[in-house]
């Protein structure tokens, strides 16, 4: 049963990711991206990363995807039917990416991955919070400054010049 759920999400991710890169309609591509993010959040649950799964849904689906949809809506005239676009160099790009993918598969296959068994933790939030406040305090603070900078920068850039 649990295997069935896992493979369902894997197939969901693969199909929706293909739809993201190939769909002619940008809105459909964005909705497919939602399904991809959802599937990845599900895989995080399978990887015992409960907090990361929640963060993925909150930030990617609730934040980034909504921003992307706003971007699509603001840069197309809603009245014009053509909310679509084309791709260029599909043949060469596809060939390059296919070669890269096969190379990655080969690398994954031949590498002797060193694995360690572990017990499933009850929750990860506690450890993440402790680590953020001790070992990773400096990156944590730098990230907050970066977010402030991005906030101000985005607001200044997006405003029309008066």
């Amino acid at each position: 049963m649990i295997n069935l759920v896992f493979w369902f999400f894997v197939i969901l991710i693969v199909l929706s990711a293909f739809s993201v890169v190939l769909n002619k309609n940008l809105i459909y591509a964005a909705i497919s991206l939602l399904l991809t993010f959802l599937g990845i959040a599900a895989l995080y649950v399978f990887l015992w990363a409960d907090f990361m799964a929640g963060t993925q849904v909150l930030i990617y689906i609730g934040g980034i995807l909504i921003l992307l949809l706003f971007g699509i809506m603001l840069t197309h005239k809603i009245t014009s039917v053509k909310i679509s676009h084309t791709s260029v160099q599909k043949g060469i790009g596809g060939a390059v990416v296919l070669v890269l993918f096969i190379g990655l598969l080969w690398m994954i296959k031949i590498t002797p991955w060193k694995m360690e068994s572990a017990m499933e933790p009850e929750q990860t939030v506690n450890t993440i919070g402790t680590l953020l406040m001790t070992d990773f305090l400096l990156p944590f603070e730098v990230a907050s400054v970066l977010l402030l900078g991005a906030l101000i920068g985005a607001a200044v850039l997006a405003r029309k010049e008066s």
Binding site: I64, K114, L146, A154
Partner: peptide
């Protein structure tokens, strides 16, 4: 790798950077 939470922290920072990147890129 033995349920090492440091990987989660790294992924968390990637998500934070992605959010900042998307905001500026859309602007």
């Amino acid at each position: 790798g033995g349920m090492n939470i440091t990987g989660h922290i790294f992924a968390l920072f990637v998500i934070v950077l992605a959010a900042a990147e998307v905001a500026v890129a859309l602007a």
